[in-house]
């Protein structure tokens, strides 16, 4: 599946096993991207880490 980075418009190809909420990185601008839809494939800028995120 292919789509464009929502930040820099770089073309991205993702595997068929891609899941909703998976985090990808744009190979061009290094933005963290979240899969918000699989069919059709839609990526969005991933949320910034919040204060209570972690292990």
């Amino acid at each position: 599946m292919t789509t464009a980075c929502p930040e820099c418009d770089n073309g991205l190809t993702v595997g068929s096993g891609t899941r909703l909420s998976e985090i990808l990185e744009c190979g061009d601008c290094r933005s963290e991207l979240e899969v918000v839809s699989v069919e059709p494939l839609i990526l969005a800028i991933a949320p910034e880490a919040e204060e209570d995120w972690g292990e």
Partner: peptide, 13 residues
């Protein structure tokens, strides 16, 4: 339950 599927969650699934 997860809001982000990281390497760990994908491995668990």
């Amino acid at each position: 339950l997860a809001s982000r599927l990281r390497v760990e969650e994908k491995a668990l699934l």
